[in-house]
Write a protein that binds this DNA or RNA. Structure first.
Lengths: 172, 172
DNA sequence: TAATGAATGTTATATCATAACATGTCAAGG
DNA sequence: CCTTGACATGTTATGATATAACATTCATTA
């Protein structure tokens, strides 16, 4: 197995979307505003738990495990059983507001909700940071290979493990 | 969450490498022969549990969960505790003889061991079949996107969910 | 306001994975 | 030979992730 979870999972996984510092409060706020509009247009119900779950992921600005999210929700008076978190996360993922990182069994807020985009996730093995990279060409290449085999792709996930710019210096 | 596991997990996940019928006994034997040579050259120890684990995956010719593998190993007199299966699988994955399918929490024998190749996995959501597709161009596209962000990729995984040729007819 | 359907809360359990330590195996050097 | 050290395996115990099933609440509207 590769890059398994750390012993201490009470700590969230870092995830700066571009491996570069910036004003989290603002970018989180921007995304939330976009989401509000999008949700209205789509007739979706962004209930308190769902909204708060999204906020938690936006504020954390990194990938969190379902149980990390649950812990925060419970601390704020929401239910403290796993289905509470899993259901909110499921809703958000299905509506493209949150991405699931398979390799980490974790979830990260989408930084480009509403926009049609194919994400790829770059996971730093040293700092656990996760960045969302544009991957339309990647998807196109995979579609080509799939078509050659007669397979029709409906969903795809692209994840890479490696070193982010900051950690490359440290590793060297 | 998307495409979760079935209630009955005692059944293995189907996985025809090219979504086309062929002589399993022969292709499994071919791969095993290649592996024997490769293992000798690399000075690796293909012990009974490890060898049998690989055979089980080759014979099944599809993705199996660790506990499915364990059940079969135990039935043949090997240990019946999880670490037995996980350790053998870990060895095989690290040496490129088996691939891990993240989306399914499952493992499938590599059909091209020894050859340098970048695999992508096409998973049929109807029959659970898994095919290994050549994905060098996919990896190249992702490398390009990663490089643009200053990220260095060490390992990558490409997985797609959709419909295999056979199931497309049924679904239509 | 009663009926309805969706969302949430709760209980219980299934599933996936690993830490830690004991035991066995085997080959290289004394 | 035999012992020692490295690696593999077996076993116990537990941790981490996820869902089924059912009870309750809430919002909408007929």
């Amino acid at each position: 197995m590769v890059a398994r979870r750390k012993p201490d999972t009470s700590h969230a996984l870092a995830a700066d979307p571009a491996f570069a510092p910036h004003d989290h409060t603002q970018c989180a706020g921007d995304v939330l505003t976009q989401v509000e509009v999008q949700v209205l247009n789509a007739g979706l119900r962004l209930t308190p738990v769902r909204r708060r779950t999204l906020e938690i992921l936006l504020e954390a600005h990194r990938a969190l495990g379902a149980y990390d999210v649950l812990q925060r929700l419970a601390a704020e008076g929401f239910g403290n059983q796993p289905p509470v978190a899993y259901r909110a996360l499921e809703f958000l993922v299905e509506n493209g507001l949150v991405h699931r990182i398979q390799r980490l069994n974790a979830f990260a807020a989408c930084m480009h909700p509403g926009q049609v985009h194919v994400p790829a996730f770059l996971i730093c093995r040293m700092c656990d940071g996760v960045a969302e990279a544009p991957a339309a060409p990647v998807r196109a290449a995979l579609d080509k290979a799939a078509t050659a085999m007669g397979f029709i792709i409906e969903r795809s996930s692209f994840e890479a493990l490696g070193l982010c710019p900051a950690c490359q210096g440290i590793a060297a």
